[in-house]
Nucleic acid binder design. Structure first.
Length: 733
RNA sequence: GGGCGGUUAGCUCAGCUGGUUAGAGCGCUGCAUUCACAUUGCAGAGGCCACAGGUUCGAAUCCUGUACCGCCCACCA
């Protein structure tokens, strides 16, 4: 007779069980029973940023991946879940800069680069330790022995190697062009990091000067001091007569020279149908200027201040300069109209600052350049075949080597690729992988290691965080070295990120892996949604609606939180976090506990139990007559549940799987069969078969539930004096 | 401007390839407490599955359209 306490107390169990798992070594696939013959199954953990603590979204992500890896481990796979963290330069650097300003009253520029970077590294280390604790407390069965960091030495070598290869093949180049400058973050960012925010704005309609023949409309009159042309549609009869003519004017004290040009991209119906072209401070205008060979005149600097004109605008911020220009236009009688409109303003994803398009020299990855693929294990593309990075990214999804679920995201992915422009990878930050390029006079040197000799200066810029994240699936396995891990575990099997990083990360991993390894990075992507608060809002600092996963786990238990997060969460759909749900799942855990308590309270339980522990199918016991209809029924239902849960797992319908076992456990096994068994246990003839049925049902339910609620199931399993841990038990068939 | 998703019980959501009286959790109502569990059990109320057409023997599920809500993308300044 085995006695359990009346209620399940997660606080006494979770640390103990996690330690048992760690001691067993089974998180490391090399230590699994019969590891040599197992088929590899790999998940790379999307590395959380080392900017602080984890939120409910991370808890959700950890949960669904842990469910999959535990399931695959029980299926007999050589299951590797590789953890790590991301140095996330923009977020981390700005976070530390803020902290220093608050605590020491100093600014980033008061320190040397080395001093500042070491402070950031210190912060990142603390943050890392917190994150590890949190991942651990979620019960994540990650292989800590293989933990990686996007900014450690091994990953740095991978980054330099990748850069060098792309540079040598002409896929990375340095170019001067209009880029997205984040005034607040003081760095360039890529197109994907630009977020458009709709805001009310004024649309001004005016002429440059009294004798200028065309009126133009703009929301940014201050930039007109940098105009070099006015563009109209080629078929606009109003303006045909002026095309090709050139005019001089003085605009708010600044002399300008304007050429009238015709370009198809101009909308006849917007504003006056004439567009003032500012080649230095607008991406679109820069493209028009390139088509028409127009000169470009920079008039705004990195601080968002005007660099031309007199005291009315010089050194003023653009918004202030705008007021001055508007005043001048009105004074001169040049203003025709001021209208209120809604406008999309470009802001930086991380800092929220305004994007000021500026002409600058930066590093880019050319996504359209044709080149021979150095090595290929991809289906449908041969080694040496001419490809572009865009083509590679599209191809592997199109021909099904990589599957994206839910399927609708494949279309979104293609659409993104089709509109993709060269990827700006340099950042004016200190914390990050410094670009492995050195200069001396007119010479440029790119290599994995610095050049020998005196006088070389390394490019001060660092790389976009997604450059190193793009290497994640293989840099974590030892690349560029040809390690046995790389051979065994790459391509990885499954990737489970949020849909919001499909472009940022998933696409970049596909780019890097197909190019550098000639392999897909993963076979299957399952995108999950965002966890929102009970009112459907995103969790955010400004709303102060955050819920700390650790509070939930200590209050209700990790199992309860995991089950609550996965219950009702369909792939790709956002989910609402509700504390009530966690509470309900704590009740479920307690229910399971009491089912076990009842079964184990029978004195004879050990004897029949020992007899069935090796078996895996209910069919094996049905033959053990006498057996009642109730026995048959519960065993038949159990078979069906096994079948259904397995098929849900295979299709990543974790929410369906969870619901199915929940229903069975509570409302079939506990509510119906357990009650009937009470009578049967009184009958000597039926006692043995009843105990067999009870035990078999419990064992099976524990197995089925283990990926979802690993702690309590392992704890009960342990009470059943099993030789092996549940974590490596066989998935029922 | 283009694309995508949502609209199912009071609330939050499932419903996989169309098939018996549409499900869950929470909440609500009534009854039950020494017998695994009150973190409980039993019983129950509650839904023209957004709307309008169509396909089908049969539609919450497929097609067309409409209306709201939300998201993504985009060089209308």
């Amino acid at each position: 007779m085995i006695e359990l306490e009346k209620t399940y107390d997660h606080s006494k169990v979770e640390e103990k069980i996690y330690s048992q798992w760690l001691e067993s070594g089974f998180f490391n696939p090399d230590n699994l029973p019969n590891a040599e013959t197992r088929e590899p199954f790999t998940i790379s953990l999307p590395p959380p940023n080392v900017t602080g603590t984890l939120h409910m979204g991370h808890a959700f992500e950890d949960t669904i991946q842990d469910i999959m890896i535990r399931y695959e481990r029980m299926l007999g796979k050589k299951a590797l879940w590789l953890p790590g963290t991301d140095h996330a330069p923009i977020a981390t650097e700005s976070k530390v800069a803020k902290l220093i300003e608050k605590e020491e009253g100093k600014r980033k520029t008061d320190f040397s680069r080395e001093e500042f970077v070491s402070k950031v590294k210190e912060f990142a280390q603390t943050s890392h330790d917190t994150i590890v604790k949190q991942v651990r407390s979620m019960g994540a069965s990650v292989d800590w022995s293989r933990e990686a960091y996007t900014f450690d030495d091994k990953r740095n070598l991978a980054v330099r190697t990748a850069f060098k290869r792309m540079y040598d093949q002409g896929l990375i180049y340095r170019g001067f062009r209009v880029v997205n400058w984040d005034v607040k973050g003081q760095t360039v960012i890529s197109d994907d990091e630009v977020v458009y925010v709709e805001r009310p704005a004024k649309l001004y309609t005016f002429r440059y000067s009294k004798d200028f023949p065309i009126t133009i409309s703009t929301t940014r009159p201050e930039t007109k001091v940098g105009d070099t042309a006015v563009a109209v549609h080629p078929e606009d009869d109003r303006y045909k007569q002026f095309v090709g003519k050139e005019y001089d004017a003085e605009f708010c004290g600044v002399p300008i020279h304007i050429k009238i040009i015709a370009d198809k991209t101009v909308e006849k119906d917007f504003g006056t149908g004439a567009l003032g072209v500012t080649p230095a401070h607008s991406m679109t205008d820069a493209e028009i200027a390139r088509r028409h060979n127009l000169p470009s005149k920079a008039i705004i600097n990195e601080y968002g201040k005007m660099t031309v004109g007199d005291e009315r605008i010089l050194n003023k911020k653009t918004a202030e300069a705008r007021e001055s220009v508007v005043l001048w236009l009105n004074e001169q009688g040049l203003m025709e109209k001021e209208e209120d409109i809604q406008q999309n303003v470009a802001t930086a994803e991380r800092t929220g600052g305004i994007i000021e398009p500026l002409p600058k020299t930066q590093w880019f990855i050319n996504v359209n350049k044709e080149f021979p693929l150095p090595h290929s294990e991809l289906q449908g593309i041969k080694e040496g075949e001419m490809v572009t990075l865009k083509k590679l990214m599209r191809h592997v999804v199109e021909n099904g080597q990589i599957k994206i679920a839910p399927e609708r995201f494949e279309k979104i992915y293609y659409h993104w690729i089709d509109g993709l422009r060269d990827w700006c990878i340099s950042r004016q930050l200190w914390f990050g992988h410094q670009i492995p390029v050195w200069y001396k006079g007119d010479e440029t040197y790119c290599d994995i290691n610095p050049p020998k000799g005196e006088g070389w200066v390394q490019d001060p810029d660092t790389l976009d965080t997604w450059f190193s994240s793009g290497l994640w699936t293989f840099s974590t396995l030892g690349w560029p070295e040809q390690t046995s891990d790389l051979k065994t575990f790459h391509p990885t099997s499954l990737m489970m990120p949020g849909y919001e990083i499909l472009f940022f990360w998933v696409a970049r991993m596909i780019l890097m892996s197909t190019y550098l390894l000639g392999q897909i990075p993963f076979k299957q992507v399952v995108l999950h949604g965002i966890v929102r608060d009970s009112k459907g809002r995103k969790f955010s600092k400004s709303l102060n609606n955050g819920v700390d996963p650790l509070d939930m786990t200590s209050k209700y238990g990790t199992d309860a939180l995991r089950m609550a997060l996965v219950f009702g969460a369909a792939p790709g759909n956002d989910t609402i976090f509700d504390e009530q749900k966690v509470k309900g799942m704590k009740h479920f855990a307690n229910k399971l506990w009491n089912i076990a308590r009842f079964i184990l309270s029978n004195e004879d339980v050990v004897r029949p139990f020992m007899g069935i522990k090796e078996a895996n199918k209910s069919a094996d016991y049905i033959t053990l007559a006498p057996i009642t209809d109730a026995d048959k029924e519960i065993l038949a239902k159990l078979d069906e549940v096994i079948k259904n849960v397995t098929s849900h797992m295979e299709a990543f319908r974790l929410h369906e799987a969870a619901q199915e076992i929940y229903q069975f456990t509570w409302h079939e096994l506990a509510d119906i069969y357990l009650e009937k068994s009470k009578d049967q246990l009184q009958n000597k003839e039926l006692k043995d078969s009843t105990l067999l049925t009870l035990n078999f049902s419990l064992l099976t339910v524990l197995k089925l539930l283990h990926p979802f609620i690993p702690f309590i199931t392992e704890e009960i399993w342990g009470k059943l004096s099993q030789k092996e841990l549940l974590i490596v038990a066989n998935w029922p068939k």
